[in-house]
Amino acid sequence: MHTRECLVSAPGKAILHGEHAVVHGKVALAVSLNLRTYLRLQSTSDAKVCINLPNIDTFLSWEITTLQPLLTGCEAQGDLKQELDADFLKRLRAFTGISDDSTDTRSMAVLAFLYMYLSVFAEAESLASITVSVWSELPTGAGLGSSAAYNVCLAAALLSARGIISSPLTTQQESARWSKEEMELINRWAFMGEKIIHGNPSGVDNAVGTWGCFLRYHEGNITPLNGVPVLRILLTNTKVPRSTKVLVSGVKDKINKFPSVMKPVLESVDAVSRTCEQILTEMSTHGPSAEHYDILEELIDINQHHLSVMGVGHSSLDTLCRITLARGLHSKLTGAGGGGCGITLLRPETDASVIQSTAEELQACGFDCWETSIGAPGVQQHSSDSLKQDILKILNSY
């Protein structure tokens, strides 16, 4: 073990523009949410490995002696492969009793942890005795990148503990980030965790969790947009369940049925994403202005109408847009739609009383609502002093 304790965090994610169209080769803009997942890794001397996930009521521990045999035939981590070790994953499923068709949050989180922990320490003289506690501000299953934030935190903490990446935090700093090369390694490991949980992820969620801020995604290529100012938002979870797979399939069916109608819609969504990218770049170069916010609000309205045309709107999202627009605020769904979450842009001059009354009315509809921001930094290491006392208390209680 190269560190006795490690405190890290990673942000959630939202899609600003381009959801659904991105599946058909168009540009999407992904953004980090300033709602974070926090992880504490502590070295112990009890010859056990413990994982505590209070958000999903999961508290497990294993004797190191029972985990060691699982490494037989496990390939060393030195050159991280792009594909999962299927045989190793099969052994982990058998060991934990998690069936091949199980996809519940708890089982997938445990599998991802064990896969990463054992792979990272495969070449060590012995498996490390550690306790890992994770707590998140992000709701699970809401399309806000909660699993990716979890995997990014796991990757950063385990790689740091093993000494594969540095501990960037100095005694004078409250938080610090790793080098570009180390961040790329964290991202690759987190992507492996995402594959365990989701099967065939795009890589966008873990990239946002690693790099943070604003990212452009187009046909598999992810490009950071540098220097864009943080934007305040209201994030609303309608709590209406939906199936991303069904919604994506529905959009595809509509495109096949009405190609001459729907293909121009996709082109228009692409233009919205590209125009927004241009405005964000201008804001990073010249600073934000009222005119910039005017355009961002118009683009939000336009894209929300596009998404309704695609068939991924919902009455709950209509309610969100109606309530916010009555106060001069502009909203759109984020993610798959059909319910789920929406974002509302807040201008710098938006009065606190307006935000409060809006949130209260949305909560009265049965929605969850947070005032937060987009463009937050990616994965970070923290000192104990830099974490809020309530968060540190939670992490230290396990």
Score class of each variant (00 low, 15 high):
residue 9 S to L: 06
residue 13 K to L: 11
residue 19 E to V: 10
residue 32 S to Y: 09
residue 52 N to A: 14
residue 53 L to I: 15
residue 58 T to Y: 08
residue 62 W to S: 05
residue 65 T to C: 00
residue 70 L to K: 07
residue 70 L to S: 03
residue 78 G to R: 14
residue 80 L to H: 00
residue 83 E to L: 10
residue 85 D to T: 05
residue 87 D to Y: 05
residue 94 A to L: 12
residue 95 F to E: 06
residue 97 G to D: 13
residue 105 T to W: 12
residue 113 F to H: 05
residue 118 L to W: 04
residue 119 S to A: 08
residue 119 S to L: 11
residue 122 A to V: 10
residue 124 A to P: 14
residue 124 A to T: 14
residue 125 E to Y: 03
residue 128 A to K: 10
residue 130 I to K: 07
residue 134 V to Q: 05
residue 135 W to Y: 13
residue 139 P to C: 12
residue 143 G to I: 05
residue 145 G to W: 01
residue 146 S to R: 04
residue 151 N to A: 14
residue 160 S to D: 12
residue 161 A to E: 01
residue 162 R to E: 11
residue 166 S to G: 12
residue 170 T to A: 10
residue 172 Q to D: 10
residue 176 A to E: 04
residue 177 R to L: 08
residue 178 W to E: 01
residue 185 L to W: 03
residue 191 F to I: 10
residue 191 F to Y: 03
residue 196 I to S: 00
residue 197 I to Q: 03
residue 198 H to Q: 08
residue 209 G to T: 15
residue 213 C to I: 00
residue 213 C to V: 02
residue 213 C to G: 05
residue 215 L to P: 10
residue 216 R to E: 02
residue 222 I to D: 02
residue 223 T to G: 06
residue 226 N to P: 04
residue 238 T to L: 10
residue 239 K to C: 10
residue 251 V to H: 07
residue 258 F to E: 11
residue 258 F to L: 08
residue 261 V to T: 15
residue 263 K to D: 04
residue 264 P to N: 08
residue 264 P to L: 03
residue 272 V to K: 05
residue 273 S to Q: 02
residue 273 S to R: 01
residue 273 S to N: 01
residue 279 I to R: 02
residue 281 T to C: 04
residue 282 E to K: 03
residue 287 G to S: 05
residue 296 L to D: 06
residue 303 N to T: 03
residue 304 Q to A: 01
residue 304 Q to G: 07
residue 305 H to T: 15
residue 308 S to A: 11
residue 311 G to Y: 04
residue 312 V to D: 08
residue 313 G to T: 00
residue 315 S to V: 08
residue 326 A to G: 13
residue 331 S to W: 09
residue 332 K to P: 02
residue 336 A to E: 09
residue 337 G to P: 09
residue 343 I to C: 00
residue 344 T to Q: 03
residue 345 L to F: 00
residue 349 E to K: 11
residue 351 D to F: 15
residue 357 S to V: 03
residue 360 E to G: 01
residue 361 E to Y: 08
residue 368 D to H: 05
residue 368 D to I: 04
residue 369 C to R: 00
residue 372 T to F: 03
residue 372 T to C: 06
residue 376 A to D: 01
residue 385 D to M: 11
residue 386 S to Q: 08
residue 389 Q to A: 11
residue 396 N to G: 13
